[in-house]
Design a protein around this nucleic acid. Sequence first.
DNA 1: CGCGGGATTGACT
DNA 2: GTCAATCCCGCGT
Length: 189
Amino acid sequence: MSPAPLPHSFYAEDTVSVALSLIGCQLHRVIDGHHLVGRIVETEAYCGPEDDASHSAKGRTARTEVMFGPPGHAYVYLIYGMWNCFNVVTGPAGRAEAVLIRAIEPLVGIEEMRRRRSRTDHLADGPGKLGQALGITRADNGVDLREPNLFVSRGAPATSVIATPRIGIDYAVKCRDELWRFVADTRQS
DNA sequence: CGCGGGATTGACT
DNA sequence: GTCAATCCCGCGT
């Protein structure tokens, strides 16, 4: 019996708070009969149209549509032509906010992740790698995160979390210095 | 370990 | 046509 998916109410809170709360939670993926689990260790908050690093700052388009929908759903986008990045929609419906899950520590199904990544290390320590390791694609865009095939469950609360600016968004002059990236502190555990 | 360049494709100007 | 919330490999330090 798998742990229970987090309820939609978990995702409906303030996006920065959700990004922090997700550290230490478990990400579950069932694909081709394999149960894959990882501990979330890195997230980034994207805080709606006023956040110039958020895709939703460019307006409501086909790509960003699910961000404008209810919280607790997957937002998956393709980047650099080949990598799928997994986000969870957060905040109240219509707020177009999301949290990018940037890295997990593999816990279950490591061999399958290795097969999907075609290597034995660095399986999911980056958003593109995570998508590849778990077989997440745009086919998962918009799915309800209470689906048994893709969901997050509560985990051991992180004892220490570091906040930093977000990665790869230097073009976002207004919000690039906000401390909206969260990383589990590896010095402790 | 840091840096530079190529890969690859859909979304948007 | 340009570019993107990235990754990997090769090379120099």
